[in-house]
Write a protein that binds this DNA or RNA. Structure first.
Lengths: 99, 99
DNA sequence: ACAAGGCATCGACGTCCGTCGATAACTCTG
DNA sequence: CAGAGTTATCGACGGACGTCGATGCCTTGT
């Protein structure tokens, strides 16, 4: 595995390696509409609005969330297959796919 | 996803979310014998011996590496299926397996 | 035009993490 | 037993990260 690819994968994993962000993704996934806005998440996560907004930005930058601003509200939804892609890449580190 | 499970998964992912540790796993996996000792890794990683030892300890504690001390040398080998297990768990966050 | 409310950004603080040099512990060799 | 070599641990330093309060932006409704 090249240092470049290791750095990229590490940055992606670092975006997921936080309890608040994992719960955030889970909450959005569990939503009936498949999306949620910031004000829907501050309660369950027990975090302030700036903190939740920050976490959402991290996940958007990492390619796990999609932001759709409609009027005043910002609707966040999962990027389909993003997490599956990471999960599929992980075993490659331990196998002889060291290209 | 329960806060407890989120915290556990986050701790596991945090162990992987580092370029040096990903390369370390890859180097061990690419070894012909399937194992490597500290002195084999300091060169390719361009890190000092204490740092490599520290990273190995983190990966052992997280369940990704196995340590086998034979005489003076400490042989590290991958725990079979450990990374595959994490990869299989990741999509569960984005699906309605919110149990 | 003004007020209200949701969100993003900013600055700051405390904590955790990666890295290193120095040192100790342990094992084999002579 | 003394010496050399490998690894683990310790202490310290710099940087990154999660969190918050305060503030500004922007849209909606009156």
């Amino acid at each position: 595995m090249s240092p470049q690819r290791a750095a990229d994968l590490a940055r992606t994993l670092k975006a997921l390696a936080d309890p608040a962000r994992l719960r955030l993704l889970s909450l959005i996934a569990a939503s009936p509409t498949g999306e949620a806005c910031i004000c829907d998440l501050t309660g369950p996560l027990e975090l302030t609005q700036p903190t939740v907004s920050h976490h959402c930005k991290v996940l958007v930058d990492a390619g796990f969330l999609r932001r759709d601003k409609r009027g005043v509200w910002a609707h966040y939804s999962l990027v389909p297959g993003a997490m599956q892609a990471v999960g599929a890449d992980l075993p490659g580190v331990g196998k002889l796919v060291t290209a």
